[in-house]
Simulated assay, not measured.
Amino acid sequence: MNTHNVQADWIPGSGLQLRKAGVQFDAVRVDGDPGRAIADELAWLTGGDPGPIVQEENGRRAVYFLVAVGSTSHRSWPDGVTRLTAGQGHVSYVPVPALEGHTWPLSWRYRPTGPDRRVHTLLLRAALNSHE
């Protein structure tokens, strides 16, 4: 699939925007080189299509794995993992870059390949647990 033509209302047309977790997706954040290594491992395991993964180039150099809404709850996660979800009395926001143009400090480490494609939560959790 040509990822440059993916149409999804959660992907901004230009620049970057914050999206409320729990609407289109939740996210799992892993900071720094460990997040990048996990993203690349998922790409290898999935034949190059791990689902949408955003990376940040400054600050904590976060990597955001966009997962299905509600898929991170009721599971144990390793230290260093931040779940970005929404619930009663709690709201999280996930930064999302456009597919093209100026989006610094965000970029797509792995672009979305379909409007409803997400990172497989159990595969992500297994990869994270194998790196503990």
Rank of each mutant, 00 (worst) to 15 (best):
T46M: 08
G47D: 09
G47W: 07
G48C: 10
G48H: 09
G48W: 07
P50Y: 01
P50E: 07
P50T: 08
G51R: 06
G51E: 01
G51M: 01
G51W: 02
P52F: 06
I53E: 10
I53N: 07
V54F: 09
V54K: 06
Q55M: 08
Q55F: 07
Q55T: 14
E56V: 06
E56D: 13
E57Q: 14
E57I: 01
N58K: 07
N58E: 13
N58S: 12
N58P: 00
N58C: 03
N58R: 09
N58M: 06
N58I: 13
N58D: 14
G59Y: 12
R60E: 09
A62F: 08
A62V: 02
V63I: 14
V63A: 04
V63C: 15
Y64A: 04
Y64D: 02
Y64Q: 03
Y64E: 01
F65Q: 10
F65V: 12
L66N: 08
V67M: 11
A68T: 13
A68E: 15
A68Q: 13
A68L: 06
V69L: 06
V69G: 04
V69E: 03
G70H: 11
S71C: 10
S71P: 08
T72H: 01
T72D: 03
T72W: 03
T72V: 15
T72N: 00
H74E: 15
R75P: 02
R75C: 12
W77H: 09
W77F: 06
W77R: 09
P78T: 12
P78W: 10
D79Q: 13
D79A: 15
G80E: 07
G80W: 07
V81H: 08
V81P: 06
V81T: 13
V81M: 12
V81E: 13
T82L: 11
R83Y: 06
R83Q: 14
L84V: 04
L84A: 05
L84Q: 09
L84S: 02
A86R: 09
A86N: 10
A86K: 03
G87D: 12
G89F: 04
G89P: 03
H90N: 11
H90V: 12
V91I: 14
V91P: 00
V91N: 06
V91E: 12
V91Y: 05
V91T: 14
S92A: 10
V94D: 01
V94Q: 02
V94T: 11
V94E: 02
P95S: 02
V96K: 01
V96I: 15
V96N: 02
V96A: 04
V96R: 00
P97R: 01
P97F: 02
L99N: 08
L99K: 14
E100V: 11
G101A: 10
G101H: 08
T103R: 04
T103G: 00
